[in-house]
Write a protein that binds this DNA or RNA. Structure first.
Lengths: 213, 213
DNA sequence: TGCCAAGTATGACGTCCGACCTACAATGCA
DNA sequence: TGCATTGTAGGTCGGACGTCATACTTGGCA
């Protein structure tokens, strides 16, 4: 049945899930083939670049899903604190529901591959840039200035990534919930986030803005 | 030179460094052997449990180093904000100095191995418990109540872990510094952290304390 | 002092599994 | 019907983990 099969797309989705749950090295090509039901011989037809190309596609797909998750969580939120909580609930549910296997879709790959692959590194950076942008845009709708919104977005991303690691290590949701609630609470009671407050000592400290963007 | 060689210790130190920089799967036994100068045949004499036992030893060693780092950073600090900054400087220096290869000593292994190995999972949990304890104890010296100190420790650990991921992905220190500075700043200007402030709405929210410990 | 035994350490080897390549089949279009 | 493009199964090569027979050193004893 040649001429356009959906094998490629199915492989990317299966790979994204496996990379997220197990990581890059623990996921064999044969695992992706089995999970997707794709034929074995097609791999290097669909992905001439091999496993790394498959990873690149999976990373981009993860970027899409993160953006969608932020958008979904933002519905009905009235401030950064409630957005953090809404996102935290979504992530916590998936973490618990998967038996502490499903964390961030790209974190494992970042740590495994970023030091080795300049190419994939730029893909990772894109995903975080998209995530940062989605969060910052949402924060700005609540009258947070762009600079502070970016700083806050970095802090929020970091807490989510890190809390996932700590909770996955302990196989216990409490560290995650404590970190998320602590962040939401701090952010909620921080008046300097809002535009018009003392800009002499802006949130995020002095001279610490992005140099590359 | 049989009868007590230091091969075992050297292998653990080399493995800890390699696991930290490259991760578990990307580090071959032969890499550890080469880096430590130990002979190939000694591996299963010193580590009958194989690579996993070597990893367990390396994880414990990482726990020691983290405790020492917290103690070193705490010297001369007058509050949680300055401790966060001091730790941040130490970590940032190593991250930059290593070309964004040296992050958290165990984070990569947590994501790679925690879903698969119940045994190593408990080792990871021990390291984070030690780290949490070291931070919380230090916070308590600044009149922060034990419950809030634990919540704050989880938040701090999460920010460090997550910020390392984001910065390693981008190969840029700015996201790390933004997150650390944002955290330090929030913590510094949070009066509810101190004992004696309105305990009706404690920092960290309600009903979110550790259930297992 | 010379020898033996036990524990210690080691280089060479086997086995398995991973990614990747090559030769072949099937289909749509001219 | 013939050809180019798409899709496929089996096979190969390399490397990593783990094992084994062997050599070396130390301590005790005659």
């Amino acid at each position: 049945m040649p001429r356009r099969s959906d094998s490629r797309s199915r492989m990317i989705h299966a790979a994204a899930r496996l990379f997220r749950d197990r990581g890059y090295y623990a996921t064999a090509f044969s695992d992706v083939i089995q999970a997707s039901g794709a034929p074995r011989g097609s791999t290097y037809f669909h992905f001439p670049g091999g496993k790394q190309e498959l990873a690149r596609e999976a990373i981009a797909l993860a970027g899409d899903e993160i953006e969608q998750m932020v958008a979904a969580a933002a519905v009905g939120c009235e401030g950064p604190g409630s957005l953090v909580r809404a996102l935290g609930d979504m992530v916590a549910d998936r973490l618990e529901g998967s038996g502490y296997r499903s964390g961030c879709a790209i974190a494992t790959m970042v740590l495994e591959l970023a030091p080795q692959s300049e190419d994939l590194s730029s893909e990772f950076e894109k995903v975080f840039a998209r995530w940062r942008h989605a969060l910052a845009r949402q924060f700005e709708t609540w009258r947070i200035t762009p600079g502070r919104a970016t700083d806050l977005a970095d802090l929020v991303m970091s807490v989510f990534e890190g809390a996932l690691i700590v909770s996955r290590a302990a196989r216990d949701i409490d560290p995650f919930r404590r970190a998320i609630e602590g962040l939401a609470d701090l952010v909620e009671h921080e008046p300097r986030l809002l535009a018009g407050s003392s800009q002499a000592a802006p949130f995020g400290g002095a001279g610490c803005h992005q140099g590359t963007g």
